[in-house]
Amino acid sequence: MTVLRTCGITKYFYDPEKFQVLKNISMEVQRGEFLSLVGKSGCGKSTLMYVLSTMDTDFEGELEIAGENLTRRSQNYLAAFRNRHIGFVFQFHYLLPEFTVLQNVMLPALKLGELSKAEIENRAIEKLQLLGMAEHARKKTNKLSGGQQQRVAIARALINNPDVLMGDEPTGNLDSHNSRIVFDIFRELTTVHKQTIIAVTHDEEFARQTDRVVEMSDGRIL
């Protein structure tokens, strides 16, 4: 079953001069697939991820996630859609420093507002257990190591059981040991929980072990 489909995505930057950063990108991602996106620095990987994540709407072509066509939707609609269907992990964790680990993980679910607070808390603990972080639930996020913080960020991205988990170099800022941990978690999520994952990476080792490697060059998929 196709979770994500793009058709002829094309994007330009106009500053400092007109420059085509994405060239006619068409791709499909199946449910439960673990896909890695690789390519030279500056080839447009991050730009593509922002388009796929619905945060960037300034492009031509069609984008469809979970059977819904997302082109020409309002910002508010897309925000609600992201909240329910997409989890995003960045190179940096971007946890909110004033909140505890548990609160950070709960935030997207509180925003969604479909479960009671107690149910959300249970589910957040569940996700933290999945990532081996449950015992740190009550800590402030700045009391954690970089690898631990990234695992909390992954738990946060998973809290609403998204259709796609996207990562822009999710291990880019981690040492090899922590990279390994994150990779294993991703692997487990896709095989055991049928979680769809699209991850940009520079790590060849990481890419080689995913289900499919998509290589980009100069704004095109090879």
Partner: peptide, 13 residues
Amino acid sequence: KDIAILKAMGFAG
């Protein structure tokens, strides 16, 4: 940064 991540998580303007 917090605002950016909130928006990425699905908080509207």
